[in-house]
Structures are given as C-alpha cells and as structure tokens.
Computed example of a mutant assay.
Amino acid sequence: MRKFVLTVFAVSALALPVAPPAAAESLGTILFGRPLEPGLLVIVMRPSYHGDEDRIPSIYRYPSAETIARAQNEIASNPILREALERRNIQPHNVVAVQTAASGGKIVYAR
C-alpha cells in the first residue's frame, strides 16, 4: 500500500506542467491587473470618516477656484486625458486638480 501511494504521488508530481518564466508576468497581471493607462493615476476623493484625509494634500482636498480652472483647462486641451477619464466614468466637471508627476505622468484628483 505504501509503495502504491508513493507511486501515485510521484506520477502526479511528474504530470504537473512546468511553468516557463514568462508565465510569472501573466500571473502578476492576473493577480494585480493591468493599469488602464500607464502614467495616469486617478485619486477619487470621497468623504472619509476614518481619518485618512491626511494622505491627500490639503490644496487638493480644498482646491481654489484657480486650481479647478487649471484642471478643467488641461482636460479640455488634452484629448488623451479626457478619453481616459471617460473610460473610468469620471465626468470632467468632477475633476478638481491635475498634477504632473516627476515621471511625466499625470495625477488626477476628482470628486
């Protein structure tokens, strides 16, 4: 009986497919998803009752009229940014600020 169990275990171990290294990338994509648009981060600000408002700078939590106007102008002049927001179902009038990251990407703050 013991030899039978060991034989079954050995055969089943040999029957498992060996994954090539490229499969690790697809596994990461399956687990974590693929970014919709590389270089674009959208932060949707919602009222929080747990005290995590400190993660978003106050100039974006309480934007001035000038900050909102600059964000609206940037969305109006950048069709790629506008299409990316439409794919995420974010209306352009809900965007309060657009920040350019050090890498050249955009960080969009929306309500």
Rank of each mutant, 00 (worst) to 15 (best):
T7M: 11
A102Q: 15
N89T: 11
L81M: 13
V44H: 03
V5R: 14
I30K: 15
K106P: 03
K3P: 02
L27Y: 14
N89H: 05
E74V: 01
R111C: 01
T29Y: 07
M1P: 07
D54G: 04
N94I: 01
I75K: 09
R61L: 10
P79F: 00
P38N: 13
V8G: 11
P57M: 05
Y109R: 12
V96M: 04
A10N: 13
V44E: 15
V96Q: 08
V18C: 07
F9A: 14
P47T: 02
R70A: 13
Q99C: 00
A69R: 09
S64Y: 03
R46F: 00
K106N: 10
E74F: 07
A22F: 08
L14H: 05
F9I: 06
T29R: 06
A23N: 09
I90A: 04
V42A: 07
L81V: 04
L16H: 13
E66V: 09
P21A: 12
I90Y: 02
G39T: 02
T67E: 11
E83A: 15
V8E: 08
I75W: 02
V108Y: 00
L27W: 10
R111D: 09
A23C: 09
E25P: 00
V5P: 05
A101M: 11
V18G: 01
I107H: 12
V11P: 06
L14V: 06
E83N: 12
P20H: 10
L81K: 15
L40Q: 04
S12G: 10
S77C: 01
Q72D: 04
P63T: 10
E74W: 06
S77I: 02
D54W: 11
G33P: 03
S58G: 08
A102P: 10
Y49E: 11
R2E: 09
V5C: 13
I56K: 04
Q91F: 05
T67N: 06
G39Q: 08
R46D: 10
L40Y: 01
A71F: 00
D54T: 04
E86V: 03
T100C: 07
N73A: 15
F4C: 03
P17D: 05
G39K: 04
P38E: 14
L6M: 10
L85D: 06
G33A: 12
A23L: 13
T29S: 09
L31R: 09
K106Y: 08
Q99L: 01
